[in-house]
Simulated scan of single mutants.
Amino acid sequence: MKELFDIAISIVNLPLTVLLGALVLYWILTTLTGLDLDFFDGDIDMDVDTDVDFDARANLDVQDISNTEVKKEEVLRRRGKLNFFQVFLLYFNFVGLPFMFTFTFFVLFWWALTMAGTSITHSYANDFGFLFFFGSILPALLITKIVTKPFKRFFTNFNNKGEVALEFLGREGVLQSAISGDRLTTLEIKIQSDPIKVMVQSKNGLPISANTPVTIVNQVKNKQIYIIQPLNH
């Protein structure tokens, strides 16, 4: 046990050990206190066709529970419309599931692979060990993608508080980003003072400028994408 501890706090493994410990503390705090620690709050605005199955809550809110079903071929076909970071997030399930959920799995596998590699080669205390540190990133991402994929079905019909999906039609909010045509963006609405973000698209593709009060008037069939129009239109 002492040898394992020494390896974990070695010069190569210490950064991941500290990060993993911080994530464990994060989950303990959010579980026991319900604190909404939105370290990675942000939106992903995408120009995509509506035949892509994006979940209504596809953004980077830590507490958002979503089910962004983006097939590999769809992402590859639209690589010209999505930047590298967006493709990366989609492909490795950092958008299709709560960000911190996927991120925790990734760090856990990265730490485990680095620990195993440096332990077997006894390189945890020298520069050679950093080859395992950086070389384990891609394998950890691939394992994370495989392990987290089954959880998408579990999270499909739940919102950010773990409740059954709510009715969004008729809800109002203020659009933060201008949209038109097939462009998608997120809209924050409040239900019983609980902020929830949904993916939205302009009705009939009409342009809507930023900071415009809007209302949700419809939903794309079989998709978690909602149609909006200016309030009092």
Rank of each mutant, 00 (worst) to 15 (best):
Thr212Lys: 06
Asn218Gly: 13
Gln192His: 13
Leu142Ile: 03
Glu172Thr: 14
Glu172Ala: 04
Tyr226Pro: 00
Ile143Gln: 13
Phe134Lys: 10
Asn159Lys: 03
Ser202Met: 01
Asn204Ala: 12
Ile216Ser: 10
Gly205Arg: 12
Asn159Met: 04
Ala140His: 09
Lys152Tyr: 09
Pro207His: 06
Ser136Trp: 01
Val164Met: 01
Ser136Phe: 05
Lys197His: 02
Asn157Arg: 10
Ile208Lys: 06
Ser180Glu: 15
Ser180Leu: 10
Arg171Cys: 11
Leu142Arg: 09
Ser209Gly: 12
Ile191Asn: 01
Lys203Ala: 14
Phe158Met: 11
Lys203Phe: 08
Glu172Gln: 11
Gly181Gln: 07
Gln192Asp: 14
Leu187Pro: 03
Ile189Val: 13
Ser202Trp: 05
Ser180His: 02
Thr186Gln: 14
Gln201Gly: 05
Ile146Trp: 13
Gly129Arg: 05
Ala210Tyr: 02
Asn211Leu: 13
Phe134Glu: 10
Ser193Gly: 09
Gln224Arg: 12
Pro207Cys: 10
Ile189Pro: 00
Thr212Asn: 08
Ile196Trp: 05
Asp182Phe: 13
Ile208Phe: 12
Val198Lys: 09
Asp182Lys: 15
Thr215Cys: 13
Ile225Cys: 09
Thr212Pro: 13
Asp194Gly: 00
Gln176Gly: 07
Ile208Val: 14
Leu187Glu: 05
Val174Cys: 05
Leu142Asn: 04
Ile196Thr: 04
Leu166Ala: 10
Arg153Pro: 02
Val217Phe: 03
Thr156Lys: 13
Phe168Glu: 10
Leu169His: 00
Asn218Phe: 01
Ser180Val: 00
Gln201Asn: 07
Phe154Asn: 06
Thr148Leu: 10
Gln224Gly: 09
Phe134Trp: 15
Ser202Ile: 02
Gly205Asp: 00
Gly181Glu: 02
Pro195Gly: 06
Phe154Thr: 15
Pro195Glu: 02
Val200Tyr: 03
Asn222Trp: 01
Asp194His: 12
Phe133Asp: 10
Gln219Thr: 08
Ala210Leu: 05
Leu142Lys: 13
Ile208Cys: 12
Glu163His: 02
Gly135Ile: 12
Pro150Asn: 11
Leu131Trp: 06
Ser209Gln: 14
Thr156Ala: 14
Thr185Met: 01
Phe128Gly: 03
Gly129Cys: 07
Ser177Pro: 04
Leu169Val: 11
Thr212Gly: 13
Arg171Ser: 07
Asp127His: 08
Phe130Ala: 12
Leu166Thr: 07
Thr156Arg: 14
Ser177Gly: 05
Val220Thr: 06
Ile208Tyr: 08
Asn157Val: 01
Phe128Val: 14
Lys221Gly: 06
Gly205Asn: 09
Leu142Trp: 08
Lys152Gly: 07
Gly162Phe: 09
Glu167Met: 00
Ile179Tyr: 11
Arg153Ala: 10
Ile196Lys: 01
Leu175Trp: 06
Leu206Gln: 04
Lys149Pro: 05
Leu166Ser: 07
Gly173Trp: 01
Pro213His: 00
Lys161Ser: 09
Val200His: 03
Phe158Ile: 15
Lys161Phe: 04
Gln201Ala: 05
Gly173Glu: 02
Ala165Met: 15
Phe154Val: 15
Gly205Lys: 11
